[in-house]
Simulated assay, not measured.
Amino acid sequence: MAATAAASGVEVSLWLTGDASWMAVPGRAERVELPHAAPLRDLVDAVLATGTVTVCGQCAARRDLSAADLIEGVVVRGAAAFVEEVMAEGVQALVY
């Protein structure tokens, strides 16, 4: 969904939570094969090309991940940053 929005010109901020946090670790997204879907790493790269990808701080901590463990361009931020982002003027949050 996020990659499609980014390709459509929408400003996208993708937050990875729970086990999706692993998709920001080099080599991990490439291991996942989903029938009828683009490779996950390609989708993450598409969002990073025009938007942002963030790993939830709590989710990273639970998996012993830091910013140094993630692909270039992905950041780790906490719940307060998420709330601030989604509550900003003119922002629409889409959870799919």
Rank of each mutant, 00 (worst) to 15 (best):
T4R: 15
A5W: 04
A6Y: 09
A7P: 00
S8W: 10
S8T: 09
G9D: 01
E11K: 14
V12A: 00
V12N: 02
S13T: 15
S13M: 05
S13A: 11
L14N: 08
L14M: 02
W15E: 01
W15A: 08
L16T: 05
L16K: 06
T17W: 13
G18Q: 14
D19P: 07
A20P: 03
A20V: 03
A20W: 00
S21Q: 04
S21E: 06
S21Y: 05
S21G: 09
S21I: 07
W22S: 00
W22Q: 07
M23G: 05
M23L: 15
M23C: 12
A24Q: 05
V25G: 02
V25Q: 03
P26Q: 00
R28F: 12
A29L: 08
E30D: 15
E30F: 11
R31M: 14
E33W: 10
E33Y: 09
E33F: 13
L34G: 04
L34C: 13
L34K: 10
P35L: 11
P35E: 14
P35F: 11
H36S: 15
H36T: 14
A37I: 09
A37V: 09
A37Y: 14
A37E: 13
A38W: 01
A38S: 13
L40I: 14
L40P: 05
R41G: 06
R41I: 10
D42H: 07
D42R: 13
D42T: 12
L43C: 12
D45I: 03
D45E: 09
V47L: 00
L48H: 05
A49C: 00
T50F: 03
T50C: 02
T50V: 02
T50Q: 09
T50M: 01
G51P: 03
G51A: 03
T52Q: 02
T52H: 00
V55H: 08
V55W: 09
V55S: 06
V55N: 02
C56A: 06
G57P: 04
G57I: 06
Q58F: 11
Q58L: 12
Q58I: 03
C59F: 06
C59A: 15
C59E: 02
C59Y: 03
A60Q: 04
A61W: 08
A61N: 12
A61Q: 13
R62P: 04
R63I: 01
R63K: 04
R63Y: 00
R63S: 00
D64C: 11
L65W: 11
S66N: 10
S66T: 15
S66G: 14
A68Q: 12
A68D: 14
L70A: 09
L70Y: 03
I71F: 04
E72D: 15
E72C: 07
G73T: 05
V75F: 01
V76Y: 03
R77A: 12
G78S: 05
A80T: 11
A81C: 01
A81I: 07
F82Y: 10
V83L: 04
V83G: 10
E84N: 09
V86W: 05
V86G: 03
M87I: 12
A88Y: 01
A88E: 09
A88D: 08
G90C: 07
V91E: 01
V91N: 07
A93F: 08
L94G: 07
L94T: 08
L94P: 07
